[in-house]
Design a protein around this nucleic acid. Sequence first.
DNA 1: TGCGCCGTTTGCGCTTCAGCAAAGACGCGG
DNA 2: CCGCGTCTTTGCTGAAGCGCAAACGGCGCA
Lengths: 252, 252
Amino acid sequence: MIGPEGMPAADAAPAGGETVPGLDRSLIEGLPAFAGMRPQELDRILAGAHAARFAKETAIFEQGAEATSFFFLLDGHIRVVRNTAEGQQVIARYINAGELFGIAAAIGRDTYPASAIAAVDCVALVWPTGLWADLASRYPGFGAHAYRTLGQRLQETQNRVMEMSTEQVEQRVAHALLRLVRQSGRKVEGGIEIDFPISRQDIAEMTGTTLHTVSRLLSGWENAGLVRGGRQKVTVTDAHGLLLIAEGRRKK
Amino acid sequence: MIGPEGMPAADAAPAGGETVPGLDRSLIEGLPAFAGMRPQELDRILAGAHAARFAKETAIFEQGAEATSFFFLLDGHIRVVRNTAEGQQVIARYINAGELFGIAAAIGRDTYPASAIAAVDCVALVWPTGLWADLASRYPGFGAHAYRTLGQRLQETQNRVMEMSTEQVEQRVAHALLRLVRQSGRKVEGGIEIDFPISRQDIAEMTGTTLHTVSRLLSGWENAGLVRGGRQKVTVTDAHGLLLIAEGRRKK
DNA sequence: TGCGCCGTTTGCGCTTCAGCAAAGACGCGG
DNA sequence: CCGCGTCTTTGCTGAAGCGCAAACGGCGCA
């Protein structure tokens, strides 16, 4: 999954075939977002795109900026961040490889509602916004997948509202960790590790609390043998135990 | 919660004329959701629908139930409610006349993610889910409007997450009131009133707090001359003053 | 290889709110 | 017109968790 180093901007490709100017359909073949499409359709879709590389911690787009492009993440992890008028920030979600993002066009917006920051070095396909309507109508499976994604995000966001309304901090942080591990976990010896750098502050911004509280909770859980911590690193060693906390079935 | 029931399901329509079985296009003509459509297109759309009436406090659909229909609210106000596994409930949003709802089909779901309860007696157009794909592709403007609506709801929900993360209860309740007044306000003498019955408990479930806290806040604001309260009734008399509180620019 | 920065840990006081309890009031139905 | 149910108000108490402050430690850079 992780694409270490080295990858060229890929914009300028080795001047390959005729219909496919540099992007090979094997990049996206078989991925859910492009399921059920014929090879030449994949080529057509890729013909409108280019690949771009984004260095760790750089902004792919900024909240409020004109939505000139939409994206498909080929490799890496992206943090979607919203800023309040008062300058505080909240992490809306993380995007993993294989997901569409920045699809403001799909919902008829002309600016991005949030910023996207590369959590690690990333590679993404980039299409101009103007192509959205064309792609979505010409390839209904693609459109349907995008709208399903949108719906899932709406529901996840509402789940978060429910958590914040009904659970206390300890449970919310436990839920957030479990979600991260499920969506972006990498099996390591002795547990599952979140496979991108994530700070206590980041976790706090996902759960509506402070880094202090997160740190305290993680310390406690580390003593209890549920997780292992590290600088910008969390490894869950006892997912079941954490689930008990998340469900509120275990006292502190 | 309790349904004083009485009115018939209204499923069986009066088996009217040929192309338009009982529904006149004037019902939806000129509404944003159906903008830019020709009269016979409106008729076609209505041909697949029937109108139904829902008594106050009855469920139009239930969370988790199979999504057999989607809806357009002609008149009334609907409360969209999600229940937690532990039995607590959270109000996701209110639907006003002129909005689509229950569009699980649009995002490829086959069950409703929340329940819809009529806050007052309501009238809605009802289409079978199977017609969604047909309508959305045959009338692109209609589909685009639906997806725009979806996107707006996603953003509103994220705004709520941000509020809950960064603001305290007082500000959240003030924001919620202002939003209600903006979306469903009715001008009355001396202020703007939320034009459907809404209890302190409802407001608490919208803002992630308790009815006690909401009651205390409203009492305080009433003394300060910002709102007037009543049984299942709130009137905002000084929206600007309330805004100051919502923005945190005024101390208690 | 040493320094400095940034992320992390931990303690302490204090504010904000939820939880519990009980009484009051508004309106509907009989 | 009266009684009852539901919604609302209000006080008190306890505690979750935020804010502030300070110290620690690991990683990367010079």
